[in-house]
Simulated assay, not measured.
Amino acid sequence: MDNSNIHIIAEAGTNHNGNLDKAKELVDIACNAKADSVKFQIIYPWGLYLPGDYEYGHYDIKKVIQIREDGMLKDEEYDELAAYCKEKEIAFTASVFDERGLDLLLKFDPPYVKMASCDLNNIRFLKQVAERGKRMIISTGMSTMQDVEKSLNELAKINFDDIVLLHCVSVYPAFLEKANVGFIKTLKEKFGFPVGYSDHTGNSIAAAMALANGAEWFEKHFTADRTQEGFDHAYAMEEEGMTQYVKDLRDAEKAMIIPDQKISDAERYTRKRARRSLYAAKDLTAGTVISDEDVLIVRPEGIMDADQIDLLIGSKLNTDMKQYQAFSPDFI
């Protein structure tokens, strides 16, 4: 957005549940929220999961694959979706998980390619993406510092450095006490790349703290309806929450702007009425040696500031003064 140095990714993922109209609705929500880009996930489940019959965490793998299959858009539907994003003037992109998805995404000239945390150690695929020359945003969930360093070293070998690192806690939802946003500063200092935050918490608090720790990129899951079936709906933000999230981050960014001068014109106005200065506590005559009893240290701002009291005490007045008249250096 104009006058902003942060980029907010509205993460639609597969929350369209395989329906193009719902995908367009998600684009509308992202636009209304004033996000900078809307990101989907191009997933072909047959190359992502090991076939078979087994428990996948607390899921049955067959159920997982079925949900993924039901949640797919057809390749040709992405043409219409990307065109809709262009019409709505919001950048379109996606997370990709294999070369087929990468080829499809690059048809639309996205501003970046997103790599999910699960692929941080998929170095062969990272290199394939890097060779296509697009900025790569890499999430670092489930990874040690050594994991991150190894992958970045491999990308450096092919002279690829157009990278953004997203701090991520791969827990859904992530609780604030586990957000670890201070690690963002560590990532930035260690590797020198732009950094961001893939946020799975329930509000904007951690994101605002991430901003204070140097994050410039923010990714947030959203949905049209949290009650829908699917992996990401339950912890995603609905439209009102997503809109507030973006607003909170924009406002937090404004709060961090360093002005040209410490005191703004608005604050100078407040200072005029709120700063203490030195005033005569009573009528005083020329020749009076000023004592504490002769001076009021009160608002509003006058001529001599409160910190000049020691210049005044013990000095001799060279003029008469009325009660409540402001002291001046010219009077002593």
Rank of each mutant, 00 (worst) to 15 (best):
D2G: 14
N3A: 14
H7Y: 12
I8Y: 01
I8P: 00
T14W: 00
N17L: 10
G18T: 08
L20D: 03
D21F: 10
A23L: 02
A23R: 00
K24D: 02
L26V: 06
L26A: 01
D28Y: 05
C31I: 11
K34M: 09
S37V: 09
K39E: 07
F40C: 01
Q41F: 00
I43S: 00
P45L: 06
P51H: 14
D53S: 14
V64E: 03
I65W: 10
Q66E: 15
R68I: 02
E69W: 02
D70C: 03
M72A: 08
E76W: 10
E76A: 09
E77Q: 14
L81S: 04
A83V: 03
A83L: 08
K88C: 04
T93V: 05
S95L: 09
L102H: 10
K107G: 07
K107I: 06
P110Y: 06
Y112M: 12
Y112F: 15
Y112K: 10
K114C: 03
S117Y: 04
D119C: 02
D119K: 01
N121R: 05
K127L: 05
Q128T: 13
V129N: 04
V129H: 02
A130G: 03
E131Y: 13
M136A: 05
S139P: 00
G141R: 02
V148F: 00
E149P: 07
S151K: 04
L155R: 14
A156C: 13
I158H: 10
F160E: 14
L166K: 07
S170M: 05
A174H: 01
A174W: 00
N180S: 10
V181P: 00
G182P: 01
E189V: 06
G192E: 08
F193Q: 06
S204Y: 12
A210D: 02
E219M: 06
H221C: 09
D225R: 10
R226V: 04
T227F: 13
G230H: 02
G230F: 00
H233T: 11
A236T: 08
A236W: 04
M237L: 13
E238R: 11
G241Q: 14
D248N: 14
D248H: 12
L249T: 04
L249R: 11
L249G: 04
A252V: 08
I257H: 15
D260P: 01
S264N: 12
S264D: 05
A266W: 15
A266K: 15
Y269H: 15
A274Q: 15
A274W: 07
S277K: 08
S277H: 04
Y279S: 00
A280Y: 00
D283W: 06
A286R: 09
L296W: 00
R299P: 15
D305A: 14
D305I: 11
Q308D: 14
Q308H: 11
Q308A: 13
I309C: 03
D310A: 14
L311V: 11
G314I: 06
D320F: 01
K322F: 13
K322V: 10
Q323F: 02
Q323A: 15
F327M: 03
F327G: 01
F327S: 04
S328M: 05
